[in-house]
Each structure stands twice: as C-alpha cells, then as structure tokens.
C-alpha cells in the first residue's frame, strides 16, 4: 500500500508498504529517518517515541496505515519544531522555511553546525547522553512535557518520562537535563 503523511513538516510518500509494517519501520527503513530507535518494538522502552498529531506515541505500536494524512514529528525534526513553537502558537510550516531545512549543512563527524532545541542542548550539557540509544525518545517525550508544563516538579518529570527506559545513566543526568532545559526556558520568558 501507499501511505501519505507529513514528517517534520514535510509531506512524505511511502510506497510498497506491507500492511504489517509499523510507523517506526517506515520512518527508519523507507524514509531514511533512523533517529527513532528500535530497542524493544513492543511499546515498553519508549526509544521510538514520536509525536503523532502532537501526542507522544511509541511508533513501533502504530501501524503505518494509521498515519495516513497525519502529522509526525521525530527527533530529526525536534530543533525545527521547537523553533516553530517559539514563533507561532499554531498553524503549519511555511514552505520557504521548510526549504531552508535541507539547505543547512552539518559536519558529518560531529554534527556541529546544526541548530539544537533547548532540550537537545541541555541533554548534552548535563551529561545525559551516554550510549544515546534512549536519547531520541526521551528528547521527544521531555520536549512534549515541557511544552505542557514549563515548570515541572521532579515528580512531574519522573511521571512524564516513566515510559522511557535508559540503561546507562541511572536517570540522574536526565533529570538534570530536563531541569536545566526548564530553567533556561524560564530565563528566556
């Protein structure tokens, strides 16, 4: 089957999709967006978390056919999504702006040169990234929480991120990163 949907503000078309394929598989293997991770493929670890029409979901549990005509945001689009959120409160992305995304170059060795969202910056600064496999899902989940709740308590953070497993950090630096992003966000306002 063919699936048409929007990923990170850009219309995408996936062809020859087998009915059993998940959104995660289509993103990773058909659209060249492997940022969403495949750690359990049974909805337990949160590594594949994306936003579907704004709601965080485990993309491994969403059948590809379910996303027809819907909006998906992945970790690859998080920086632009955050920028867009700062600028406007609702509405889509201007075409001119979408064109600029592709034009922006980054260093393939280090990734330097690209812009980061506040939560991405905070994860690096706080040391919340070790192996990094859980990071994309945590970033999408944490970004969504901070959008809803700009001044979260520790208990709020833990509750919001309880669907995302991390095996390296013991979560302490992740807590630090989310607190840091919230604090920086607060300073800007």
């Amino acid at each position: 089957m063919r699936v048409n949907f929007t990923v990170n503000g850009r219309p995408q078309e996936a062809d020859d999709v087998w009915e059993g394929e998940s959104l995660l598989y289509v993103l990773r293997e058909r659209l060249g967006l492997p940022g969403s991770k495949n750690a359990c493929e049974q909805g337990e670890c949160g590594s594949c978390t994306v936003r579907l029409d704004g709601v965080p979901v485990c993309s491994c549990l969403v059948a590809a056919g379910q996303v027809q005509d819907r909006d998906v945001v992945t970790v690859e689009g998080l920086a632009d999504y955050a920028k867009q959120r700062d600028r406007v409160t609702s509405g889509g992305t201007a075409l001119d702006e979408a064109r600029q995304w592709a034009a922006r170059g980054t260093d393939s060795q280090t990734g330097e040169g690209g812009e980061l969202s506040p939560i991405q910056r905070a994860f690096i600064d706080a040391g919340a990234v070790q192996c990094g496999f859980c990071t994309p899902g945590l970033l999408v989940a944490a970004d969504e929480m901070l959008e809803r709740n700009p001044d979260p308590s520790d208990a709020d953070i833990r509750e919001a991120l309880s669907g995302n497993l991390c095996r390296c950090t013991g979560y302490e630096k992740i807590m630090d990163a989310v607190r840091l992003a919230a604090a920086r966000q607060g300073e800007e306002v």
Binding site: P34, K37, T106, T110, G111, G114, G127, G132, P136
Partner: peptide, 22 residues
C-alpha cells in the same frame, strides 16, 4: 568535564548505530 564529541549526533538522531546501517 569536556562534553562528548558524539553528543550532537546522538541528540539529533544522526548518530549511526549498528541497527541503522543501510
């Protein structure tokens, strides 16, 4: 406490894990 050289790639989803090979 210098920061990880692979940190940016890991937070943008561009870091190529073994399961991302194509």
């Amino acid at each position: 406490s210098t920061l990880r050289p692979d940190g940016t790639l890991k937070v943008t989803g561009e870091f190529a894990y073994s399961s991302d090979m194509w």
